[in-house]
């Protein structure tokens, strides 16, 4: 108990202090306000100042990052919005906070439901950003957003309706490129398989009919 422990500990803090200046000097201007600098500051070998100068520079969020959900729509060549959501209601059934409200469209003529939402509400004061809705949506229609700068002065803004929830598929492809590609791949494969199955079925049907015809012909003879 002669104070050597404290001195040794102070040595550690002193080393950190010196490291800061040495590192700043060594890396120069590339350390701040550059992509490279941010990547360095979040890597395992970082030394010295660690701070991200938000808002001048922002820590990029990873692809899987999730904040409040949004709905994906596709743009037809005519410029129309085609909403992917078919209002199947799985997201409302899996949402732990029960923050999703979907109103299904009914056909005015037949009175039967149509596969598109008439209205869609998400209360982000309830949402727990868990991402289960996006995970279990069978149509890749609801996805988690990357925008986190949502602070408001008025809480009534925090209920998002259909118009405010919609975002184009190009935006989705931009924030989650890997996921998007994987899903497109799967979709293509599924369509391929469907097409093949249909073809095979058509073939089988043709073959059956041919066989039938043959049989009938044979009977006639």
């Amino acid at each position: 108990m002669d104070g050597s422990g404290i001195l040794k500990g102070l040595g550690v803090t002193l080393k950190r202090l010196i490291d800061t200046y040495v590192d700043d000097f060594k890396r120069g201007k590339s350390r701040y306000y550059t992509q490279e600098g941010i990547e360095y500051r979040r890597s395992a070998e970082v030394k010295g100042i660690f701070t991200v100068q938000y808002p001048e520079e922002k820590l990029p969020v990873p692809e899987e990052f999730r904040f409040v959900p949004f709905l994906v729509y596709e743009e037809t060549p005519e410029g129309e919005q085609k909403i992917r959501c078919t209002s199947c209601g799985i997201c409302t059934k899996v949402c732990p906070a029960q923050c999703i409200w979907i109103e299904r469209t009914t056909d005015p003529k037949t009175g039967r439901p149509r596969p598109e939402p008439a209205d869609f509400h998400i209360d982000i004061d309830l949402c727990m950003n868990c991402g289960l809705c996006a995970e279990y949506c069978p149509f890749d229609a609801i996805k988690m957003d990357h925008v986190y700068e949502l602070a408001t002065y008025d809480r009534s803004n925090n209920v998002l309706d259909l118009q405010r929830l919609l975002k184009p598929v190009s935006y989705y492809a931009e924030i989650r490129p890997n996921n998007y590609q994987r899903e497109e791949e799967a979709r293509r494969k599924a369509e391929e398989a469907k097409r093949k199955a249909a073809e095979a079925r058509a073939k089988a049907k043709a073959a059956r009919e041919a066989a039938k015809a043959k049989k009938q012909e044979a009977k006639k003879e």
Partner: peptide, 15 residues
């Protein structure tokens, strides 16, 4: 000011 998120990230808080 209301800051949505569960939890808001530090950057969201600064915003």
């Amino acid at each position: 000011v209301y800051i949505p998120g569960c939890p808001p990230t530090p950057q969201a808080l600064i915003y």
